[in-house]
Design a protein around this nucleic acid. Structure first.
Lengths: 294, 294
DNA sequence: CGCTTTGATAGTTTTTACTTATGATAAACA
DNA sequence: TGTTTATCATAAGTAAAAACTATCAAAGCG
């Protein structure tokens, strides 16, 4: 293994450029003997002479000429590494892998991605949409940088910050539009359509109705809010959806949407990331961007 | 200017490869704390974190992943510089710029170049053919690595080694083939054809005849031995040529060649180079090759 | 809970790199 | 031809960097 140093390459490059030990040493802000010695050590390390020490002149050997080009390449590459580092700390650069739960993704992401890529044009955004436990796991494995989920997550290794609260709305068939608002308790007796097992939103809805979560009940479980609304529209029952989903999901369905009375059911949506993540600082900024567009 | 070291790059690369401080340190044959510290210093120098120090695991940051590739590039380039150095010292590599005087070049070079490129196939040979003073000047300016000229040169800064002695032969018209050999003194009264001013061989011939060198005499001056012989063949006079030139130059000319009586006129041909040349060692070897094929 | 693994920290020693002072040599000059 | 000047090498001492050993702290695991 060759044992030269970048410092030696720098000195050598300066020497090649100035053709003069003293001037090169000045340029490197060191004394002339220091430069002489480093050059000599470099020659020893390489086992070949770089310069021809003629009286009154410093001339590169043939190998020296080849070497100085190589040296410049290497120094340039090192500088570029520095540039890269600077770029990576000044702004978010490269890849941001963000996970989002399915009951938020379709409604929030379009705006978030727009805002993010406007602010950080060089940021390459990868989105993963799946249920909270999977997101948390992938976060832990380093496959994701951050995730947007319902809080709390309560993982010691993860940091979390709230983004916004969202209310759950009741969706029932259009014919019931003017019926009185059922209480949480009355909901239990209605045919409540829910998302399939695994979605946190299912548990949150059940919890609001004081129903135990767990094995599927006698109702049909859907895999998306969109499906749920279509099922309601077909008169199969009622359901809850987050407020944010209302504009998108009820646009083309003959359903009525109404707000619960106080206390309204809500959940807090937030962002989580590994406390140890080096992006920690910048993720706070990203959370802020998400907040402003939600 | 970025202030990292190749050592740090090596350590970092090992860390990235092993994903483990202890193992990486072993691989680098240093202690674990030493590696930890160098990595930390590298991160400080770059102003960006390279690894995410999670408990129980070492994971590269996004920047770290980019950086390790860069690091590998840089390390590879440094190794290549070492390879290059090794190649350049084990054998003659690259360019050998050799100067030869015109009265030797055509007769010696074919064999020398053949032998040289057989022994050092990667050697790129450049030949410069001109008169001694020009060769010496270009040698001093570093435009040539070595030159083959008539000794002595007596330049303090140049090393010289004899290659061989060569005898001068008399060339006269074929009709004089059986005439008695003229003495050096008699030559003065004959029509002696010579090379033009500047060729050392001209001076050597004049010196043999005890004639002053200097301004052209009433004779025609030729620019090559070949021309001289053709002039002799045309009956314009006599001339001297080096023994080595005889086979080539008299093959297709109706002239007679004869050897002088003792003391025969001779000159010593040798090789010269800058004492300070880093090729000095190898030039001795080259001189040896030239000797064996002359 | 203790035990083990793993990386960070502290204190010390060794090595490396730099500085100033001086020497040597050849070119430049008178 | 001696003297000066320019230029790089060498030497000796000092400052800085990098290494080691020992120890600590935190996290995973039985």
């Amino acid at each position: 293994m060759i044992n030269i140093t970048l410092k030696q390459l720098r000195y050598f490059e300066a020497l090649a450029r100035h053709g003069h030990f003293g001037k090169a040493a000045d340029a490197c802000a060191i004394s002339q003997p220091a430069l002489s010695m480093q050059i000599k050590e470099m020659e020893e390390a390489l086992g070949a002479s770089l310069i021809e020490r003629g009286p009154r002149q410093v001339r590169l050997t043939h190998f020296g000429e080849v070497a100085v080009e190589r040296a410049r390449d290497i120094l340039r590459a090192a500088e570029e590494l520095g540039d890269l580092a600077r770029a990576s700390r000044d702004r978010l650069v490269g890849r941001l892998r963000i996970g989002v739960i399915p009951t938020i993704a379709p409604y929030l992401l379009p705006r978030v991605i727009g805002a993010l890529s406007e602010k950080h044009p060089e940021l390459e955004i990868h989105v993963r949409e799946t249920v909270t436990p999977k997101l948390i796991q992938e976060l832990g494995e380093g496959k994701l940088d951050t995730a947007i989920v319902a809080l709390p997550v309560s993982e010691g290794s993860l940091a979390e910050t709230p983004l916004f609260d969202e209310t759950f709305m009741l969706v029932r068939s259009a014919s019931e539009a003017n019926a009185p608002m059922p209480s949480a308790d009355r909901l239990r007796e209605m045919r409540l359509l829910l998302l399939e097992e695994g979605h946190c939103f299912r548990d949150q809805a059940l919890s609001f109705c004081n129903l135990p979560s767990g094995p599927p009940r006698e109702v049909l479980d859907a895999s998306s809010l969109s499906t749920l609304v279509q099922m309601v529209s077909a008169g199969m029952g009622v359901t809850l959806i987050p407020e944010m989903a209302v504009p998108v999901e009820t646009r083309s369905a003959s359903v009525s949407v109404c707000r619960f009375e106080d206390p309204e059911p809500t959940r807090t949506v937030g962002m989580v990331w590994r406390k140890s993540s080096p992006l920690a600082g910048q993720l706070g900024e990203i959370a802020e961007i998400v907040r402003t567009c939600s």
